[in-house]
């Protein structure tokens, strides 16, 4: 039972890592009070999804998707890699918009902590 569980974990390590990283990202978004750290959590969650796509595209003993490959050589799938490639660039744009909002929030309320922000907004 334990051995088969370990074997599943060993052969699917990238997916297991992705689940744990998603958990950590989610934890940062829920539990950290600082807005900048929340945004880092969003980024972490994003990278976990990227890891999933890349792990799907991976092929054991293959090579990078430069075609035409030598005969009989396996090549990693280009399609998930393209999706991740564009998603990373869109991700940084999204992070930048979030950071701009953080800068605005600080200019308006003078704090970046979520609990203090709630109090300030409740007082208004």
């Amino acid at each position: 039972m334990i051995e088969s569980g370990l074997e599943i974990l060993a052969s699917r390590y990238a997916y297991a890592l992705m689940f744990v990283l998603m958990g950590i990202g989610l934890y940062m978004v829920i539990a950290n009070e600082n807005l900048v750290k929340k945004l880092i959590g969003v980024n972490l969650f994003q990278t976990a999804i990227f890891l999933f796509f890349i792990a799907v595209a991976y092929v054991e003993g293959g090579s990078a998707p430069i075609v035409p490959a030598e005969s009989g050589e396996a090549v990693a799938s280009p399609l998930p890699q393209v999706i991740v490639l564009t998603a990373i660039v869109v991700g940084i744009a999204l992070t930048a918009v979030g950071l701009a909002l953080v800068v605005r929030i600080y200019a308006e309320y003078g704090t970046l902590r979520e609990d203090t922000l709630r109090e300030v907004r409740a007082d208004e």
Binding site: A14, T47, F50, A55, A57, Y58, G62, A76, Q81
Partner: peptide, 10 residues
């Protein structure tokens, strides 16, 4: 994991 393009971007 054989994704050099993605690695460079990351």
């Amino acid at each position: 994991l054989l994704a050099p393009d993605v690695a460079m971007t990351e």
